[in-house]
Design a protein around this nucleic acid. Structure first.
Lengths: 220, 220, 220, 220
DNA sequence: CATGAATGAGGATTCATTCAT
DNA sequence: CATGAATGAATCCTCATTCAT
């Protein structure tokens, strides 16, 4: 669409990745995550970013575009915060560390804001929901899935459907923690509480997927 | 039109549960769940309900009140609270039935809309989030907790923390189903897919909490 | 216009002076005087009068009519509160008593409300302003004028223009009292303060209009 | 249109005294004084001012603020505060000139509208009434009081309470003029009528407060 | 490019008035 | 006659967007 304005290499400035642009997105992120898409006003964003309202429209076509880009970058930033599965440790320790890191990322104000904001807009703007899922959730989950597959190959775990197993573990870690938090019943859970829940999740997970005398997950 | 609904007491007004009030809530539900709290306008709601804008304010103090009532009625209507644990069956069957019902309520467009909408507004209006959590989530989960406690007393299950166990089971049932759905990656999961995931969840749950030769949840 | 609906003497009820009508006007007075014409709502008036909103329109064509009638009756009521000049006393005492009564009627919340309310609407509804002036102000002033004329005839006072003199005395009595009060700078002035100001006014008035060695009002 | 007003500093914005701001106040004055605070709508004001509704809110926080500023500028503009007491003349001439100027400012349509409008709103919004009294009435009266005090020091007048005396004089000048006018009984009084009333007021005032053989204000 | 003043459509809410019961 | 539910026009105010400088 906007492609190939070709002959003007000079002053392309706002096309991709100028400092101003990053500055705007940074301000927008703060405001969008705090107030949601509808609650955020372009004026507030301009103030937060330290630019004029007009400048917003130099870099972004409209509020929607700015929101999309903001969420994208937030996604990337969150995706970055990925757990390092490569460090060799026993499975139980790895699961516990991953689970705790995962919950800590999920149940803090910033993570919650992003999820809330995207989830809210997903009905009206499905592509945004999809992009966020792919970049953040599928991404971080995917790396966990790979880890599980590696363990299966190594014979450390016995798993039929690693995607399902990965989902089960992360969900187990959320038990009693995520919903009360996201619905504003409590502040972020304490590290101790997280450790307890993750321990229990790990036990259940290993009870189900660790090769033992009898594999109770495949009954009969 | 609405004349002579026979047994209706005269002039019960807009106090609690008139036909008009239900009509308004019905219209509001459609609009709120489609567009979210901010996206929905009172004008749109009035049109959807087939009443004038002014009438909205005869029955509800403001947009907030209408939203709260709508969301609560939606939850009740959805049967999230309605699963019948009292019918005597073996634990495994009950868990599977409950899990399937739970996921079906959660992962259909109506359920997703309600959750999305409330979650979205919870940041700016925590009371709404809290109220929803208490009345809908805690309530439905509470009945499951009671069921588990009964089983523990009966010796059918061995559970240390029934709240945690209840959260674990419902979360397990969501694995691979809820997030892709809520972020608009897929349509509602098929009954077969739900059954598979719930089966796996039930197996893990029972492996952890069913009294057996060795109780694997209490390791070492 | 509405005259001669002739043949229906029965149930004419609201035509002139039923109890309901008085009840409505009473409620309306309270609300109009407290909130002004625009600030008063028909709903509030209905509540204050203890009738339904619909009933208001049985007795009065619209808000304007109700307001007019309310002000009329208030005028009458205030006009009633007329000072009794007939009791024979010396002029000085009479002036002081009248002055004090006048200021007390003017500088209390009810009097101020009426004046404010009528004054405010006089621009948009001049007839109301005129009617109020005639019934309340001219009325009470007129009786004072007559008193002065009597004194002139009796030789007690020497006044060229009794209308002017009457206005001068009542205005003198207001000095430093009325404006701060009507602009909400102070509560009603104390009887002592009123007495002081009225005393001074009386002195100035008599100095100007009492026959003495030289009549200073007619100089040169 | 408004371009190049030459010496205007760039970007002075809407902070204090821009042309747009004056334009808005001008339109607001017309509408407020004609219709009163409640009767005036922001839409009407925008139209009268030749700007958009939104622009109103760029320069003023809300209807209240716009009203306050309008009323204050109106008072100032009207020259109520502007009478020059410093020009040396004899007391009698000064009083007559001041009295006439005062009544002319008070009893013309603009002055009446301002007073009516503020008085009307003073009941519901006392701060507005108070602010108007302080800035306009007390201010203009205060300069008269100072003048009187100067005369007392000079021995030209003998006055115990100069505040009271100032109020008395201005009130005397209003006799038979202000009330009929403000209640829409008559148009603005003619200069001749004003002169007559002010002459009489001046005579009464000087009879009471000019040092003479006998000071008639301190009777018997 | 950057600005911020200006816009006008749209939102929530109120209220005088009507009308079926 | 009395009611009060229903109406819809009108109000104040917000905000995404544009444009002259």
């Amino acid at each position: 669409m906007v492609a190939h304005q070709a002959a003007t290499p000079l002053h392309q400035g706002h096309d991709e990745d100028s400092a101003k642009r990053r500055q705007i997105v940074k301000g927008a992120r703060a405001v969008f995550l705090e107030l949601g898409f509808d609650g955020a006003s372009m004026g507030e964003i301009a103030r937060a970013a330290g630019v004029s309202k007009g400048t917003l429209y130099v870099y972004f076509a409209d509020k929607n575009s700015l929101f999309c880009e903001t969420i994208e970058q937030e996604s990337v930033a969150q995706g970055m915060l990925a757990f390092d599965f490569t460090v060799a440790r026993d499975v139980e320790t790895t699961l516990k560390a991953f689970g705790a890191a995962y919950i800590q990322a999920l149940c803090n104000p910033r993570g919650a804001s992003a999820i809330r904001t995207v989830m809210a807009i997903a009905e009206r703007m499905p592509e945004i929901g999809q992009r966020y899922y792919e970049r953040v959730i599928a991404n971080s989950l995917g790396r966990f899935v790979s880890y599980l597959e590696l363990q299966v190959q190594a014979g450390t775990l016995v798993i039929d459907d690693c995607n399902l197993a990965a989902g089960q573990f992360t969900k187990l870690c959320q038990a009693t923690l995520f919903l009360p938090f996201i619905f504003q019943m409590t502040d972020s859970p304490s590290p101790e509480r997280i450790a307890d829940v993750v321990d229990s999740a790990t036990r259940m997970f290993l009870a189900a997927y660790r090769p033992s005398a009898t594999t109770p997950v495949m009954p009969d």
